[in-house]
Write a protein that binds this DNA or RNA. Structure first.
Length: 372
DNA sequence: ATGTAC
């Protein structure tokens, strides 16, 4: 036991929602306990996709009496939305070739009159990097037919899944805080929350813009999303600040829990209580650092097998390093994560989706896409 | 995850 300081500090409770057999990186659990020791912290709930992040764990809901911007992170408002889409003929190669360039922002002139949160038009309509993606997927397994029907989903239906956030806006908001206050709490929570809320709205708009861009490029119609859940945020809940970093609000709504670029994703009905921070996992969760995934991936995979996955989908990604970092083998098995949520009574699967074409970043020219 | 620096 470590020697206690003279004044006994009260540490928050920590609970990780993973079965004994589910591997969780010890660094991530250690991060949860570091967070638990912060002033004002009340409870830390680790999701089954828990993994280490920069300064704070990813896949955690953290409740405290003070607001810590670092526990939301830089990608404030990042989330996953699901848009039903109708297409006549779906040949992955054709769809991939027709995908728009989502690395280039939309022309601000095209948004004349639109309400752009924070007036931030840089990179609006772009997907970003890291684990972000825009995916045409097909509903595969229907696990709760009644619930799926209420969402208007049947087996074989196509959906666009958009995972992206607030790009440079959220990063700017966090940096403005950390430059003055470091990892400390927000001295003026209301002022932070105002900027945070703008970034959340910006992220939601960004996801809609991307869905519209893709639909237009594919000659399809797109409507409002049936699911749109932000997993990096803070809210006042039961009188305290509930921070979520890589954790989706999971108390009554539906959530798309992303698998990987070569495996299924799960749309679930979430029903998490206070012990789970009213939250569920947001994805499969990395099991390898990006550096490890790159090193091991290069030894294990060819570029071709990462671009054409075992489920027959295509991955549009002109960045070879990103392709390795995001290889399905760098992530935990999504079935394990879902199983842990179900096992703890936090979620009920509704449908699974299988990727058809996943856009990560603009493809290389035909000449540049050689082996390895 | 990001914009920027190396």
């Amino acid at each position: 036991m470590q020697k206690r300081a003279f004044v006994q500090s009260t540490s928050a409770t920590v609970k990780v929602f993973a079965a004994a057999g589910s591997w969780i990186e010890s660094d991530a659990v250690a991060q949860c306990h570091q967070v638990a020791a912060l002033d004002g912290m009340i409870h830390v709930a680790g999701m089954p996709d828990l993994h280490p992040g920069k300064g704070a764990p990813i896949g955690a809901a953290m409740a405290s009496s003070v607001l810590y911007p670092l526990l939301v992170g830089s990608d404030i408002g990042c989330g996953i939305a699901v848009f039903p889409i109708r297409l006549k003929r779906v040949v992955p190669e054709r769809v991939a070739a027709r995908f728009p360039d989502l690395d280039k922002p939309v022309d601000p002139d095209d948004l004349a009159g639109a309400d752009i949160p924070a007036g931030y038009t840089d990179s609006l309509g772009t997907v970003g990097r890291g684990n972000h993606f825009v995916e045409l997927a097909r509903v595969d397994g229907v696990l709760d037919a009644g619930h799926a029907s209420r969402l208007g989903l049947s087996g074989g239906d196509l959906v666009l899944i958009v995972h992206s956030g607030s790009r440079g806006l959220g990063e700017r908001i966090l940096r403005a805080h950390t430059e003055v206050h470091g990892a400390g709490p927000a001295p003026d929570p209301a002022a932070y929350l105002e900027m945070h809320d703008a970034a959340v709205r910006w992220g939601a708009l960004n996801r809609r813009l991307m869905a519209a861009r893709v639909a237009e490029a594919l000659g399809a119609e797109v409507t409002e999303p049936i699911v749109d859940v932000c997993h990096n945020s803070v809210e006042i809940r039961d009188g305290v600040y509930l921070h979520r970093k890589g954790a989706a609000p999971g108390d009554g709504g539906d959530v798309l829990i992303a698998g990987t670029r070569g495996t299924h994703s799960y749309l679930v009905a979430a029903h998490a209580g206070p012990e789970a921070g009213h939250s569920v996992a947001h994805g499969a969760g990395r099991k390898m650092s990006r550096a490890d995934a790159l090193r091991r991936g290069k030894a294990k995979h060819t570029v071709e097998e990462l671009r054409r996955t075992p489920v027959g989908s295509l991955v549009v990604c002109g960045d070879r390093q990103l392709l390795f970092e995001e290889a399905p083998t760098a992530y935990k098995r999504i079935e394990q994560v879902i199983g842990d949520l179900v096992g703890h009574g936090l979620a009920t699967p509704v449908v699974t989706t299988v990727p058809v074409v996943t856009y990560k970043t603009a493809d290389l020219g035909p000449r540049k896409g050689g082996r390895r």
